[in-house]
Write a protein that binds this DNA or RNA. Structure first.
Lengths: 230, 230
DNA sequence: ATAATAGTGTCTGTGAGACATTATGTA
DNA sequence: TACATAATGTCTCACAGACACTATTAT
C-alpha cells in the first residue's frame, strides 16, 4: 500500500462573545506559504510524523500552540475535501467549532479577533475556503442554540441572565424572549447544569442581577425538548 | 512542503429497514489486506491520484463502485483519526450515514446485510474501529429522528403510516405513539413534504391503509420544533 | 421622584402523551 | 358475527410567545 499523498489538516473556528454582545472570530497571520502574511483560521497539518494521539488532540494542539488558548468547548463540525480548496492540490480539512471565554486575551500581533459578521457577509475575505468553513461552524452554533444550552460556553462560569441572553441572541442571530430563557435556565437548575450562587452583580444602573453558575454535567450542552423559536 | 503521509479514506454506514422493521447494516468482504476476507464497512481511499471531485463524491463512489447502490440519503457523520485504528499507521476516516430503500438488493456474495443490533451490542465484531463508526452513525440517526423526518428516507417513496412508525421506532430504538407520528405527517403535508395519494394498501387483515408519498423539499429531512420524546 | 434594569405573573397557542372510540376490511 | 388493523377524537400537560406588572438599584 503506497503512501497516499493527501494534505490533511485541522482548522479551528474559534468564537468569542465581545462585551457588546457580538461574536468575534479568531484569526492568525500565516507565517508560511501559501497565503503567507494573510489572516486565516488557525490550524495545523496532521501527517505521519505528527505527535497527535488523535484528530481531536490535533485540534487542541492547534489552539494551544498557535494561540495559547484553551477553549471552553470544542467540537468537530465536518470535513471538507476537494481539489480546489488548496493550491497545493487535493486536500482535507477537518474543522472544529471552539467557544472561548469572554475574557480570552491574545498575546502577539499575529493574532486578532474580527467581527464574525464581517466574514459571514463577505466584507472580510479569507484564504483557502476558510470563509466557507466559518459559515458552516456558525450554522452549527445557531442550530444547536435552538435546542441546547451550547451558547453558555461563550460565557464566564459565573454569568447573569442578561449575558446569557446576549450569548443566545448572538448565536441565533435573532431576538429571544428573556422569559423563555429564564424558563430554560430554571429547567437546567433542576438538572444541576446551572446553580444559583447567592451573589449579585450590580450594573451601573437598575436592580442587581442574580449571578448564576454554569456546571456542565456532560458534553455538548443541555438538551431541551422544544425549539426556542416560534 | 513534503507530502504528508496520512492514510485517508471514507467509510459508509449504510442502513436498510427490513420487512420485520429491523435495521440492517451493509457489509462487504474485504478483498485486500489488511483484514482481507473479513466483513467490514464499504469504503475507499482518497489520495492524490483519486478522481473524486470532493469528499462527498468519494462517499458516493464508495457505495456505487463497491455495492452498485444509490442511497436515498447520504450525510457525513464525522471524521476519526489516530494511530491505533489502522495497523498501517496514522489514518483518517471520514464516515457517512447512508439510508437505503427497503427494496435494495445486493448482487454478489461479497456483500451482505447483517442486523445492526448485532454490531451495536458487540455480538458481531468488525475490523479496524468500524464498530465504533457504526455506533456513532446510529446515534446520529437516532438523534435526528427525535426532531426531524429523517427516518422516512428508509422507506419507499410511497409508504403507509405503519411503515413510517416502524422506521421511526427502529431509528430511535423505542416506541412512538402512532398519533404523534400522524400529527407530524399532517404537519409535513402542509409544507408539501408528504402528500396523500388517494391510493390504499390492503393488508392481509384489517382496514386498508392510506398510501402517502414522500416529497423531500430540501436536504436532511423536515425539522419539527418539538422532541418526539417525553 | 424618575429612570433604568431585573425579575415575576398571566394568558394563549401548539403539539406530545395517553387512551378511548369509530371505521373498514378479512375469515 | 368475531377479529384485526387503521384512523380519529378527547383530554391533559409542558412550555414557548407575548406582554403586563412588580422589584431594586442609581441619580
Amino acid at each position: 500500500m503506497s503512501a497516499a499523498e493527501v494534505l490533511a489538516g485541522v482548522d479551528i473556528v474559534a468564537l468569542r462573545l465581545s462585551e457588546e454582545g457580538v461574536l468575534q472570530l479568531l484569526l492568525i497571520r500565516r507565517a508560511q506559504a501559501p497565503f503567507a502574511e494573510q489572516w486565516a483560521l488557525p490550524g495545523v497539518l496532521v501527517n505521519g510524523r505528527c505527535v497527535d494521539a488523535s484528530l481531536d488532540a490535533a485540534a487542541e494542539r492547534a489552539l494551544h500552540d498557535k494561540a495559547r488558548i484553551a477553549p471552553q468547548h470544542l467540537e468537530q463540525v465536518a470535513t471538507v475535501g476537494n481539489m480546489a480548496r488548496d493550491p497545493r492540490g487535493w486536500s482535507l480539512s477537518t474543522f472544529y467549532l471552539a467557544l472561548l471565554a469572554p475574557d480570552t486575551e491574545l498575546q502577539g500581533d499575529d493574532l486578532r479577533f474580527v467581527a464574525l459578521a464581517e466574514v459571514l457577509d463577505g466584507r472580510l475575505a479569507l484564504p483557502f475556503d476558510h470563509a466557507h468553513l466559518v459559515v458552516q461552524a456558525a450554522e452549527r452554533l445557531a442550530s444547536k442554540a435552538v435546542y441546547t444550552s451550547l451558547p453558555l460556553y461563550l460565557l464566564a462560569p459565573r454569568f447573569t441572565v442578561t449575558e446569557a441572553l446576549a450569548a443566545f441572541q448572538a448565536s441565533l442571530g435573532q431576538a429571544v424572549q428573556h422569559t423563555t430563557l429564564r424558563g430554560r435556565l430554571e429547567k437546567m437548575k433542576q438538572h444541576g447544569w446551572v446553580l444559583d450562587t447567592g451573589a449579585k452583580n450590580q450594573p451601573k444602573m437598575g436592580r442587581p442581577q442574580n449571578l448564576l453558575e454554569h456546571r456542565p454535567q456532560g458534553a455538548g450542552g443541555f438538551i431541551f425538548d422544544r425549539s426556542v423559536l416560534s
